[in-house]
């Protein structure tokens, strides 16, 4: 039983601040310095927040799956706290990527929503991981909560590539994924800066959220009451 209060390390706090500064830099660069894309024009500037959050969202859900496996393997509180943290942070980024995606779709495709591969996949993963958090809220026993949500998270994560693959067969309208080679360096640089910025911020989020979880669990810990009577063994 570790009753000490847990919080992010100085290094993690520093990383968070660095992430914030980088995000400001990248966004200002994206809004002013980066050239407009040749077909989409100025609207393409949305990708500097949209694409980095999408990358990081997938990465964080991958972390969640890894932490879930670790949690099942070890049953440790640390693993569970990081798993719930990654699910929550993943959901925040997921929501962000959906909204910015819709803001991007409206001027480029003329519609707010399209059942294209990535939008569909990310909408479903948002609903699913939201369901996992809803389930967590209903379980009182910490051990059971950790195990069950880890099981659900692993199953949900495995589903993501299946959905992706399936929806791609179903229909596709999204533009072919661009690689840095085909993009001008003026677009690549702010995108990379923002990707790292959001990653650093997400690491700070993860650390904070996991600390909250561990503090809450520690607050539940109560020492055994004192022995009332010294008895011999039977």
């Amino acid at each position: 039983m570790n009753n000490s209060i847990s919080g992010p390390s100085k290094f993690t706090h520093g990383l968070g601040v660095l992430g914030l500064l980088l995000l400001l830099t990248g966004s200002v660069m994206g809004l002013t310095w980066a050239p407009p894309e040749q077909h989409m024009g100025e609207v393409s500037r949305i990708v500097f927040v949209h694409v980095p959050s999408a990358w990081n969202c997938l990465l964080i859900f991958t972390f969640a799956c890894g932490f879930a496996v670790w949690s099942l393997w070890s049953g440790s509180r640390k693993a569970d706290s990081y798993m719930v943290a990654s699910i929550e942070v993943g959901i925040v980024l997921n929501g962000l990527l959906l909204v910015t995606g819709m803001l991007f779709a409206r001027p480029t495709w003329g519609i707010w929503w399209d059942w294209d591969v990535r939008m569909t996949t990310s909408l479903i993963s948002l609903i699913f991981f939201g369901g996992v958090l809803a389930m967590r809220a209903l379980i009182d026993d910490p051990k059971q909560r950790a195990t069950w949500s880890a099981v659900a998270a692993v199953i949900g994560y495995v589903d993501v590539p299946l959905i992706y693959f399936c929806v791609r067969w179903w229909r596709s309208l999204h533009q072919v994924q661009s690689t840095p080679d085909t993009m001008s360096p003026g677009i690549v640089l702010p995108m990379r800066i923002n990707a790292f910025a959001i990653l650093f911020l997400a690491i700070w989020f993860l650390s904070m959220r996991a600390s909250i979880e561990r503090n809450r669990l520690a607050a539940q810990d109560v020492d055994q009451p004192d022995r009332l009577l010294e008895g011999g063994t039977l």
């Binding site: 569909t120 479903i124 993963s125 609903i127 699913f128 369901g131 996992v132 809803a134 389930m135 209903l138 379980i139 069950w148 099981v151 659900a152 199953i155 949900g156 589903d159 299946l162 959905i163 693959f165 399936c166 929806v167």
Partner: peptide, 23 residues
């Protein structure tokens, strides 16, 4: 097996299962 032990299982089971069944 999980949701049968929880309150409000009737909401939770479809909430978890339907997104999974999209493919």
């Amino acid at each position: 097996a999980m949701t049968s032990r929880l309150r409000s299982q009737d909401v939770l089971l479809p909430l978890l299962l339907f997104p999974l069944e999209v493919p």
